[in-house]
Simulated scan of single mutants.
Amino acid sequence: MAPRALDTLSTRIADAGAPGPDQLRDLYRMLSNVRQLDTAAVAWQRQGLIPGYAPMLGQEAAQVGAGAVVDTTRDFVFPTYREMGVAYTLGVNMVEYMSTHKALWHGGLYDPAATHFAPFQAVVGGSVLHAVGWAHGQTLNGASTVGLGVALAFLGDGASSQGDVHEAMNFAAILTAPVVFFVQNNGWAISVPTEQQVAGGSVAARAAGYGMPAVRVDGNDVLAVLDATRRAAAHARAGLGPVVVEAMTYRRGPHSTSDDPGRYRTLDDEKIDGGEDPLSRFRAVLLERGVADAAFFAEADAQAQTRADEIRDGVTALTSRPGSEMFDFVFQESTPTLGAQKRQWKEESEHV
């Protein structure tokens, strides 16, 4: 059976109690889909299909668990460049998502307004400012009968040292904005370990300085992440202000496909510090609860591989975008200077 659209599943998990057997199996399917696509994307870069990619190996549980809580009818996700797993969980078209990694479009060809998944970006900490602005807009508009829409802002432990993040958290607390700051502490800020760039060693501990609650959760446990994020979202949705969730996980691969982690850690370090694999861990949970068997896992993994192959075909078929688009989407209303630049570009590149 093909996995159901996760935008439907996420709403059910967001509003329900403990996940039932169908939801547990769906969560594993999504974890497997994300793992297969992430592995494939690294291979695509090595094969020359895409020029670059930011792997998320080891962070599947953190991203799927958090993404499954999002209500795509009212919440909005503000990602970094590594939240492919969240995008997949929300039902974002993965071919359109990968268009940026193919260097065809900045931020993805998908529609952010329809998917409630903002364009992803490489500005470290930049997405949290956008999240607070959007969330403050929710408070200005007033809560509906089902509560406020929540901004789920993703950032890493390295980004937490940025001044933009301090400003965003400070404003969110002052404005009582419905934001969940979801920190994936994967142990590394590129090549710098967390203990060398996060004073005190905990991002969650900083929340007290802004007068907001925080929770530190095992980021390799998809059910623990789901529960922590759901409680944080409920707090923000009720108008009680922002929350920090710090998911403790581990980046098992390089920072990006241009990075060589062997320059700053060994394979033994990765094995020791990485902890238990998130997929193996959840597989054991499902077996223990009797809601899945070996045949289910084999089928789910095979379907995930097929889906990754289909996405590869779609990415391969993507063609270059019209160059004039670099001028068309700068401002809602163009300016004389931009218009002149566009005309000059056409003359020089298209001989028009």
Rank of each mutant, 00 (worst) to 15 (best):
E325G: 05
P278T: 07
Q23A: 15
D309Q: 12
W134G: 08
H101S: 12
T100R: 07
E60Y: 01
L129P: 14
A43S: 12
G48H: 12
D269A: 05
F78M: 11
D221S: 03
A143F: 07
G239P: 11
G137I: 00
P3I: 11
N220S: 14
G137P: 02
G290L: 04
G107W: 05
F296E: 05
T139Q: 12
P213L: 14
H136P: 00
A294V: 05
A5M: 01
E246F: 13
Y250L: 07
G85K: 13
A177Y: 03
R281S: 14
G107Q: 04
G209L: 04
D157P: 09
E299H: 07
L267G: 02
S334G: 10
A54H: 13
D38R: 06
S32L: 11
G125M: 03
A122L: 10
H351E: 11
W105A: 04
D268H: 09
A302I: 02
G67D: 06
D277W: 08
A208H: 13
G17M: 08
L155P: 09
A207P: 03
A87F: 05
G219F: 13
D111P: 07
A172H: 06
G219M: 13
A153S: 13
D328L: 12
T316N: 02
V92E: 08
E270V: 15
V179N: 01
V146S: 15
A199C: 08
L338H: 10
R283K: 15
A14C: 13
S160P: 12
Q138T: 08
P278W: 06
Q59M: 05
R321V: 15
A199G: 14
L240M: 04
I311D: 04
G58N: 05
I190Y: 10
T319E: 11
T80C: 11
Q47R: 13
V124D: 03
R251Y: 08
Q23C: 11
T257Y: 05
D227I: 06
D273G: 00
L31E: 02
D38E: 05
V92R: 09
T194H: 10
A177K: 04
Q23L: 11
A131P: 05
M248D: 09
Q47F: 09
G65N: 09
L155R: 10
D277V: 03
D7Y: 08
